[in-house]
Design a protein around this nucleic acid. Structure first.
Lengths: 239, 239
DNA sequence: TAGTGGTCTAGACCACCGG
DNA sequence: CGGTGGTCTAGACCACTAA
C-alpha cells in the first residue's frame, strides 16, 4: 500500500508508538521485568507495518529503559538507574587495591557487585598508553583486564597498565590522579561485552596515577555503560 | 524480492557499507566538508535497497563523523573532534565572568567561539534546582540561559540559577565547585537545539558553586554534545 | 524543478530462544 | 517446533533544499 500517512502528520507514527510504550513504562503500566509487547503484537495493535514498529523499538531502546534479547523479546530493565561514582574513591584509605574500593563503593549503594579478572600478564605497551606512561612503544608493561558486574549485569570494563619497575616496588605514593572522560556511542564489540543496545552511549574514562615526582606510574582505561553512572567531582577553587 | 543474503553472512551488509564509508573518512578519501554519497548513489553502488543503505547511514551518523541535513545531503564534519574541558577553568583568575572563561578557553584551542544569551530574568526555581540551592520550590531566582557555539555550530546550552541575595552581593568567593556529570542519549528537542542526530549522546553536567560557609550560591545546568568535549579532572590524593 | 533525506508498506528469509 | 528479533527488498509518497 502506498505511503504513510493521511495528510499533514506532525509527529511520525513510529515516534508516537515509542512514546506510548515509554510512557507505559514510566507510569508503571509496564513494570520492571515485564515483557514489552512483541514487534508482531505492536504491528497489529497499532495497525502499522513491521518496519515502522521496528523503528519505534529503536527509539524505545535509545531511552535506556528496556533490554532486548534476540529470539526472546524485550523486557523492562530492572536496573536502578545509576550509581554515583564520586571522586571520593581516591581517598588513600579506600585504595587498598582497586577491587576492594569498587566493592565497597558499590555495596554502599545497596547493589550486588562482582569483579572478574579477564586477563593479567605482560604485554607490549600500545601507542597511547606508552605515551601516557612515558615509555617507548613496545615496552613490556603489566596489564590487568577486569569486568565489573552490578546486579549480575556487566557495567564496566577496566584495563590497567603498569611499568615493570613499578610492579616491583608498589609505591602507593600517588600524589595526584588525572582523569580524562569522554562519552560516545558504543562500538559493536563494546555493546556486546556490556550487553548494551548498539549505539547506546558509553563513557570512556582514562585515569593516570601520578607520583609526587610527577611520574605516571599507572594508566587505567575503563569503559562504562553510561546509564549506570553519575560522576561527581569536587574541585577546590584556586587562584 | 526475497530476502537477504545467500548463506551464512557474518557481518550484515549495512554494517559493511557503514564501515566502508567511515574508513573513507578516516583515511581521508572523504575530506572534511565533502559530501558523503547520497543514499540513492550508495544503493546503486553497493547494489542494495534503500532501506539497507538507510540503516548504514544511521551507523555512519552514530560514528559522529558526519552531519546530515534533510534535503541537502550528508557532509563530513569539519569539527576537529573535541575540545578539552579542563578543571583548570575553575581558576579564579579565569573566572571574570563565565563568558570570558569560555571564550578564552575555546580560542586557546584555535576555534571560533560565540556565546548567545537566549534568556535572562527571574523565574520560580524548579524542583531539582531549588533543592540544590537550599531554597523552597517556587522561590524566585535569577536564571540565565545561554547557547554556546564553536565554529558556527551550537555545542552546549547552559542555564544558571542564582538566588536574589547572591545577585545583589556577587560574592566571587567560591571555595569549591561540585560537578555531577552524566551521559545519555539526546531527547528529540535537545538533539534539535544542538543540531545532533537523534539519539546521539549528550553530556549533562550540573555545577554547584559553594562558598566557604558551605552555601550553594549558584547552580549551572549545562548540556553538551558529547562528541565535542573531553573532560579532564585532576584530583589530589587525600587520606 | 530535480535531488536529497524521512517515513512507511507488505512482504521475505535468517538466527536465536525456549519448550 | 513456534515465537521472537534481525536483515533485506522494491517499491511509494512526503518534506526540505537549492537552482
Amino acid at each position: 500500500m502506498a505511503a504513510a500517512v493521511g495528510g499533514g502528520r506532525a509527529v511520525p507514527r513510529y515516534l508516537q508508538i515509542a512514546e506510548d510504550i515509554v510512557q507505559q513504562i514510566r507510569t508503571g503500566s509496564l513494570k520492571p521485568g515485564d515483557q514489552v509487547p512483541s514487534e508482531a503484537d505492536m504491528a497489529e495493535r497499532y495497525g502499522v507495518s513491521g518496519g515502522t514498529v521496528r523503528k519505534a523499538m529503536l527509539e524505545i531502546r535509545a531511552s535506556g529503559l528496556v533490554d532486548t534479547r534476540h529470539g526472546k523479546g524485550s523486557y523492562v530493565k530492572a536496573r536502578p538507574p545509576v550509581r554515583h561514582r564520586s571522586s571520593d574513591r581516591f581517598r588513600r584509605s579506600l585504595r587498598q587495591g582497586g577491587k576492594a574500593a569498587y566493592l565497597a563503593e558499590s555495596e554502599q549503594s545497596g547493589a550486588t557487585a562482582k569483579v572478574s579478572v579477564i586477563h593479567i600478564g605482560p604485554i607490549e605497551a600500545p601507542d597511547g598508553i606508552a605515551q601516557r606512561l612515558g615509555v617507548d612503544v613496545g615496552t613490556q608493561v603489566l596489564t590487568r583486564r577486569r569486568l565489573y558486574f552490578r546486579n549480575g549485569t556487566p557495567v564496566e570494563t577496566a584495563t590497567s597498565y603498569l611499568p615493570w619497575d613499578v610492579v616491583r616496588d608498589i609505591p602507593e605514593l600517588f600524589a595526584e590522579f588525572v582523569e580524562t572522560l569522554q562519552a560516545r556511542p558504543a562500538a559493536k564489540a563494546e555493546a556486546t561485552e556490556l550487553t548494551l543496545s548498539p549505539g547506546a552511549p558509553v563513557v570512556h574514562l582514562v585515569r593516570e596515577a601520578v607520583t609526587e615526582e610527577g611520574r605516571v606510574v599507572e594508566v587505567c582505561d575503563t569503559l562504562m555503560a553510561a546509564d549506570q553512572f553519575v560522576f561527581e567531582f569536587r574541585i577546590q577553587a584556586t587562584d
